[in-house]
Amino acid sequence: MSLLEDAWEQREVQIYPALFGGTGEGIYPLDNTIFSNQFNVEEIDPRWLHFGVFKCPPIATRDTWVYVTSGMSNPWEHVEPDEFSGFGMEFILETDIEYDWAIPIMRSLLAFNILVSVGHYGDKPLIDYGDRIPQSVAQNIASLLVVEPKLFPSSFQLTSGRVDLLQITGITVQELEFAKVQGSDELANKLFDCYGSFKIEPKRLSIV
């Protein structure tokens, strides 16, 4: 098999099941309408439709739902291993129960990062730790914050290179203002100290 095929299979057959206890009912892939309706992009690379999101249900050792992207770590352009595989990242999002908004949000972030990668937004960098993203998921969760996981590995290794896991959590308006002043890392630490995880709980109170 090619490096791409090896890495793809390794991630979805070996690594994801080991990390998340399975990959649920299958992938929720991107489609043309996400790019056209949300980002006003009509012409797409057919490879983008192989990116998607898995919904991993609770298991014996974890009572939460985990949504994880697939495709950003594909080494599309490489024939030899490199330091990082593809974009060198995948996103995860954890919730206390199954929510209808989780997959659309993850697919939207995935599509946005793809467009960033091809220069659609000029020199804008790929999504990274500490980024604050305006996206409401509930009345009191007004934005998303990208953090380094603490209850999941921060990275994994594919035959094609390293892949960092970027966790997406939710923050309130008050927490967003705190992060603007004190920094995203400081807020992330306070969130984890308070709740012991980065799972999104839409009804939780602000910690600041």
Rank of each mutant, 00 (worst) to 15 (best):
D164T: 04
S117E: 07
G170K: 04
Q167V: 03
I207Q: 04
P202K: 14
L30P: 15
L110D: 12
V79K: 06
T69E: 06
P81Q: 12
F178Q: 02
E25P: 10
V13A: 15
I59G: 02
A142N: 06
I15F: 10
Y195L: 02
M106V: 06
L3W: 07
I114H: 10
G24Q: 05
F152C: 06
G183R: 01
Q182E: 11
V79M: 09
L144G: 04
D6L: 15
L187E: 06
I44M: 12
S143F: 04
D185E: 09
L144P: 05
S154K: 05
Q174F: 12
W101D: 15
P46H: 06
F91L: 13
D123W: 01
E186D: 09
K55F: 06
G88C: 09
V41T: 01
S160T: 00
G24C: 04
I168P: 00
P29N: 15
E12V: 14
L115K: 09
L165I: 12
V41I: 12
W48S: 06
I34W: 13
V137N: 05
G22C: 00
I127F: 05
A60T: 03
E148F: 08
H120I: 03
G161C: 13
K199V: 01
L165K: 06
A111R: 08
N40T: 09
D31M: 07
E9A: 04
E5C: 09
G26E: 01
V173S: 11
G86Q: 10
S108F: 14
T23E: 00
G88R: 04
R62N: 08
L115G: 06
F178A: 04
A60L: 12
L205D: 07
F54E: 00
I114E: 10
L49Y: 08
D6S: 15
K150V: 15
A18V: 04
R162W: 08
F152D: 10
L187F: 11
P153G: 04
M89D: 01
